[in-house]
Design a protein around this nucleic acid. Structure first.
Lengths: 114, 114
DNA sequence: CTAGAACCTGACATCCGTGTAAGGGTCAAG
DNA sequence: CTTGACCCTTACACGGATGTCAGGTTCTAG
């Protein structure tokens, strides 16, 4: 599939897909003329990248965590630690957001027109 | 209290406190020489602002939602709707983050060195 | 072959809360 | 009065993913 197809399939803009590639998160094959071609599996990969980005991981961290050229899982204690640390960060973020949701719910109550 | 005290009490930098004021989120009285003075209640207000910012509300939205000059609660259907809509957004964000946490947890499992 | 859609690279713009530096004023203790 | 800590305004910089524009190339349908 070409970049427009992948964009349509994932909701990521073509600009973003090129950026992911530039950051080493997403590989592409090139046609003779230089145009990008992606395997079907790229859809899932982009979806994963989107999830991690929306969780607040930056592209450098995602690159550390998801080596993209080799499909081989690189299992090192360092990587496990890194992932665990990000997991903790996200968990803490969720806790914070839950507190804030309660605050918002309280405000909704307080400001409601009776 | 002066800006340094409020900063120490809340963890927000003086820069941020001035910014909150500039955005209409936080009021201050001024001494003859122009220095800011805050009532004790400012601590709680800043804390609320911090929570809302960390939940992804921008200052314009917070300003809409928390009129700062008047302490009077401005109860309008519009405000209640606005708050409800932000509440829904945060709730959705929490759901997304929970999904991403699961993804990360799965990766931790997958990449763990056995 | 040709038109037009889709793609390419490179560069600059945007958001927005925060950091930071410059240059100067305020305030309280000694 | 002096000193030093604290504060003032103004202005510029940043990060980082994404938008957008320009100028050019590739691909595909007719």
């Amino acid at each position: 599939m070409r970049i427009g197809d992948l964009s349509a399939a994932t909701g990521a803009s073509a600009r973003s897909l090129r950026y992911y590639e530039e950051q080493g998160l997403l590989a592409s094959a090139r046609s003779g003329g230089g145009q990008r071609h992606y395997p079907e599996t790229a859809v899932e990969r982009v979806s994963l990248i989107q999830s991690l980005l929306s969780a607040g991981l930056n592209s450098a961290t995602i690159q550390d965590v998801l080596p993209c050229i080799s499909n081989e899982a690189i299992r090192t204690p360092w990587l496990a630690d890194r992932l665990t640390s990000e997991l903790e960060r996200v968990t803490k973020q969720i806790d914070d957001l839950n507190r804030t949701r309660d605050i918002l719910a309280g405000l909704v109550e307080q400001y409601r027109v009776d």
